[in-house]
């Protein structure tokens, strides 16, 4: 269970993003975070991941305050809460296969087990032919696939998606939407999907939508189901 309590975050006196924001993220489902550009969608995701520390309030994952975690615990959090960044954050000099294998290596997976998982993901995203190509020469859509494949490689508990369809052509958008709308079931994940375009989620029935507006976050769907709080 991800719980935000009384979060306050500002980057300067004029740019206050959140004021006393409290919310609970529904587990094992797709949660949409929406709002205008600059409203704080990415900041919210980074607050949840512990990449940004709130000025006040707490972000708790499985009962632990992420802003108070020590370095080693934070590394473990980064491994279980994956994020697909808008800019991809791929290592351009390394190949597709190397990028996807990174989280597995970090978690001590080697040899046949590593190869098996990497090839499973390559197949899932139709990237087999690009396996040994440097990420720097991939198209926007391919980069997004690699980014998502890397994010789910070590089977995280939570997947944070920051505008995953941004800048993609309609064909790639359709393919990726189909994949992402089922990802929480196939990979057993809690997904937070930040987007400013709700039409992206038209294929997903009745999602939880958190709207960031006027420094607050409002849930605009039915009440949160907390019967299966496994986190």
């Amino acid at each position: 269970m991800i719980v935000l309590e009384n979060i306050h975050k500002k980057f300067s006196e004029k740019t206050v993003l959140f004021e006393r924001v409290s919310l609970t993220i529904n587990p094992k489902t797709i949660n949409i975070v929406t709002g205008l550009s600059g409203s704080g969608k990415t900041t919210l995701l980074k607050l949840i991941r512990g990449e940004i520390i709130p000025d006040a309030g707490t972000v708790k994952i499985a009962g632990k305050d992420v802003s108070r975690l020590r370095s080693a615990s934070k590394k473990r959090l980064f491994r279980s809460v994956s994020m697909v960044y808008q800019e991809g954050k791929l290592i351009d000099e390394r190949t597709v296969i190397e990028n996807i294998a990174l989280p597995l290596r970090i978690n001590g997976i080697h040899g046949a087990k590593l190869r098996e998982r990497v090839y499973e993901l390559l197949e899932k995203f139709d990237l087999e032919e690009k396996a040994f190509v440097s990420c720097g020469v991939l198209s926007g859509g391919e980069r997004r696939y690699v980014s998502i494949a890397r994010a789910i490689a070590f089977s995280p508990s939570v997947l944070l998606l920051d505008e995953p369809l941004n800048g993609l052509d309609s064909k790639s958008r359709g393919k990726l939407t189909d994949f992402l709308c089922n990802i929480n079931e196939t990979e057993d994940l809690t997904v937070l999907w930040a987007t400013h375009d709700l039409s992206e989620l038209s294929k997903y029935p009745d999602p939880y939508i958190y709207e960031i507006k006027d420094k607050k976050v409002k849930l605009s769907r039915n009440e949160i189901d907390t019967t299966d709080c496994w986190l």
């Binding site: 990449e51 590394k75 980064f78 989280p103 970090i106």
Partner: peptide, 9 residues
């Protein structure tokens, strides 16, 4: 980037 993936020092 590697640090953001949870890598140790």
């Amino acid at each position: 980037i590697i640090q953001l993936l949870g890598a140790s020092g």
